[in-house]
Design a protein around this nucleic acid. Sequence first.
DNA 1: CTCACGATTAGA
DNA 2: CTAATCGTGAGA
Length: 211
Amino acid sequence: MKEKSKAGENFNLKKESKGKRKKAFFAKNAKYVAKNILGDFLVLKRDKHILAGRIVEVESYLGKDDDASHSFSGKKTARNEILYQEGGIIYVYLIYGLYWCFNIATSPEAHPQAVFIRALEPVKGVEQMKKRRGKKIRNLTNGPCRWTMAFGIDKNFLGKKIYSGQIYILEKKKKNFNITETSRIGIDYAQKSKNLPLRYYIEGNEFVSKR
DNA sequence: CTCACGATTAGA
DNA sequence: CTAATCGTGAGA
């Protein structure tokens, strides 16, 4: 099924969604949360503007048994300790000294799993996103650190709740798409888990990140 | 204290 | 293909 782009302003978020994802949803395991937020809308309110994107590509990180995870083998540091808190807490970190990666901690407390949001399809606030990135729509949000740039995500979001008034996820009513599963990107150092099918994306969607 | 390096991107 | 750029974390 070929996905039609909804990028632009002719989009009614409330009409398209069932409502906010609540705290309890994020207490599920990372695979479940990752698959189920595909097609949902990530909404951010800032400076009286609403930015929103449809979640089209995600990865799950499974914690203690996953050598690609920051919390592999129970490793706990100042940076990642937030993963050990209850599900629904936002985990952002700086990569290559340049970009911010955005994750949502999932699972009950002490179970340090996470969902990594890799790409969005812009649906609201496109002009604001362009202001931040100065690119054509096609390249605004089609990568893990591209969409965080477009949305202005940085360390200020570390530890915030994903079911808050400022940033939240709206559940998509009808999920009429196929999900493709592949191995995760950029984790070849993880000998044990690099080939696990923990990356999920909406089949045919043009905003899925490129290799 | 030192220092290697990364769940990436943009550009040649 | 490589440079960019810096907080983090492991080790001395």
